[in-house]
């Protein structure tokens, strides 16, 4: 192992009991909690400070959002299956589940694009009112996170085999960390769906 390499990416660090990669991803997720938390606070402030506030389900398409919720939850399951397949030394199965997760991400973005274009065609833009402003900011930022996760998955699908063959534990840990990020993106949507669409 070269000295320039990040330490403890395969075996856990004795004092934390975790690999450095896992500590890193959890620290990153902590910063993400603050980012989305600040925007959720902005939503609450805008809502309590407004004289009138539209019911989300009268402005937005609940059924498309419900479909997207199911798609994202399904993608979390396929992601965890992709990791479990590696533990069973089944790289073929892993690639299949990772590709399915990527497909779910693509479907999610496609449905989101239909939703956005529906709003734009009715002249509903972020500048229309505060509700739509915070709706587009929150769902847009969440969408960017979905794209980020998909880029990482695509990288592993295209170039992961070499890493798996040379250092399987390292690759498995990388997929676990990718999964932690992807589940967090799912977790954010779990709150966005009722807050924006149903309440």
């Amino acid at each position: 192992m070269s000295t320039a390499e990040i330490q403890y990416i395969e075996t856990p660090r004795p004092d934390t009991g975790l690999t450095n990669g896992k500590i890193g991803i959890w620290l990153f997720l902590a910063s993400e909690v603050m980012l989305f938390g600040a925007l959720f606070s902005a939503y609450v402030l805008l809502r309590v400070g407004a004289e009138t506030w539209p019911a989300g389900r009268e402005v937005l398409n609940v059924w498309l959002a419900l479909l997207n919720t199911v798609v994202l939850i399904s993608s979390s399951v396929t992601m965890v299956f992709a990791w479990a397949a590696l533990l069973k030394n089944d790289f073929g199965g892993h690639k299949k589940y990772l590709a399915l997760t990527l497909l779910c991400g693509l479907i999610f973005l496609g449905i989101k694009a239909i939703e956005y274009s529906g709003k734009f065609s009715h002249d509903l833009f972020p500048s229309t009112n505060n509700f739509l402003a915070i709706y587009f900011v929150l769902t847009g930022l969440h969408g960017i996170h979905v794209v980020g996760g998909m880029i990482v998955m695509l990288y592993f699908l295209l170039f992961g085999r070499k890493n798996w063959e040379q250092r399987p534990t390292m690759y498995t840990n990388r997929i676990e960390n990718t999964g932690l990020y992807w589940h967090f993106v799912d977790l954010v949507w779990i709150f966005l769906f009722p807050v924006l669409y149903l309440l």
Partner: peptide, 16 residues
């Protein structure tokens, strides 16, 4: 549910 099972918090170390 997502945190405890999919993110493995149920089986995770104390430092997390």
């Amino acid at each position: 549910l997502v945190g405890f099972f999919f993110m493995h918090l149920k089986w995770e170390r104390r430092s997390v």
